[in-house]
């Protein structure tokens, strides 16, 4: 989720849709909102309201500097973890 926000701020609905379209990441789109709320409380994500052409004002989410650091740390950890697991697993036979 942080990664989706790294380049641009996203409108809540689009953010949720893009997450749910990333294969196998989300079962219930509604559960993303509590997660977003937590990221907001952690100070990793900020929200801004913007008027929309159609319908009510929309809530946009963007990464805060703390969120960017968290994303960078996670990315590094994840790569290390992935490499470690790859090194342990037998090579694919393809």
């Amino acid at each position: 989720m942080l990664s989706l926000l790294s380049d641009t701020s996203l409108y809540a609905f689009d953010l949720v849709r893009r997450l749910s379209e990333a294969d196998g990441m989300v079962i219930s789109e509604g559960t993303i909102y509590p997660l977003l709320s937590r990221l907001r409380r952690e100070g990793w994500v900020s929200t801004t309201w913007a008027e929309s052409v159609e319908g009510p004002p929309r809530r946009y989410y963007a990464l805060t500097p703390a969120g960017e650091r968290a994303l960078a740390a996670f990315t590094a950890d994840w790569r290390r973890f992935r490499d470690a697991v790859d090194a342990l697993l037998p090579e694919e036979a393809t």
Binding site: F13, G30, E54, R58
Partner: peptide, 13 residues
């Protein structure tokens, strides 16, 4: 309110 917005956004978009 977030879920309401989600529903509204879906229906208006």
């Amino acid at each position: 309110s977030e879920i309401r917005e989600h529903i509204a956004a879906s229906m208006s978009g």
